[in-house]
Design a protein around this nucleic acid. Structure first.
Length: 215
DNA sequence: TAGGCCATCTGGTCCT
DNA sequence: AGGACCAGATGGCCTA
């Protein structure tokens, strides 16, 4: 945490606590922190559940560590992968929505303005988000390729390094990632895996590895 | 065995 | 003052 104003606030003189009191206080703080992290994990699991249909393998998503001994088939998404996937999902939905609006606009123009019951909501951008994972089946491949292709188009300038940046971690503007979406399910032919080691998903890579414990 | 992922502890800062 | 939030450190478990 930054913003430490030199000196002030850093030390807490307070009254002396007995060792028992200190221990008790520590226990309290620890359990609060534990609770906080558990809540965070619950939220992460909820997100995982939503993202699971798009994850690489049909899975065992939830909370309890479902480690089947020696069996890779249902590895649960790591936290970073979950976040990354969720981000791409959101971007994909956004671009899909744009595309849908565009197509509907064309259709309505072709049909004459007042004819069809084209929902105004769609044209004006009020389309509700799709809520359930089962309602819109996108493959992980399409999720990833759309984001990847958009990023490569937006950042194709730095060609020196063979590895494109991992769009997941690139701080670029949202719009840059919104590209037309291919709805095709590209099949299970997995592309090259992202070497970034962070997302561990096909087709992504970034140049700056993120150290877990930078010294 | 190395590396990834995770939970937990801990000390610090910020906010109410 | 107390709680929330954050980040570093550490150790355990698991997989390649």
């Amino acid at each position: 945490m930054l913003g430490l104003q030199s000196g002030q606030r850093s030390t807490k003189p307070q009254r002396e606590l007995s060792p028992e009191e200190q221990q008790e206080l520590r226990r309290k703080i620890n359990s609060r922190e534990r609770k906080r992290m558990q809540d965070l994990n619950i939220a992460m699991d909820a997100l995982r559940e939503v993202m699971v249909p798009y994850a690489s393998s049909p899975s065992s998503a939830s909370s309890s560590q479902s480690h089947q001994p020696g069996a890779p088939p249902g590895r649960r998404l790591s936290k970073i992968s979950t976040l990354v996937l969720a981000r791409n999902y959101i971007l994909l939905l956004g671009s899909s929505l744009q595309e849908m609006r565009r197509l509907l606009g064309e259709v309505s123009i072709g049909m004459g303005v007042n004819t069809g019951p084209v929902p105004r909501l769609l044209l004006t951008g009020g389309w509700p988000l799709i809520s359930g994972p089962g309602q819109l089946l996108l493959t992980q491949e399409s999720l990833l390729t759309s984001a990847a292709s958009s990023s490569s188009s937006s950042s194709s300038s730095t060609s020196s390094s063979s590895a494109a940046k991992c769009p997941l971690l690139s701080p670029g503007p949202m719009e840059a990632s919104l590209a037309p979406v291919q709805w095709s399910s590209a099949g299970a032919s997995g592309g090259p895996l992202c070497p970034c080691g962070v997302c561990r998903l096909p087709r992504f890579s970034h140049s700056t590895p993120v150290p877990r414990f930078p010294k």
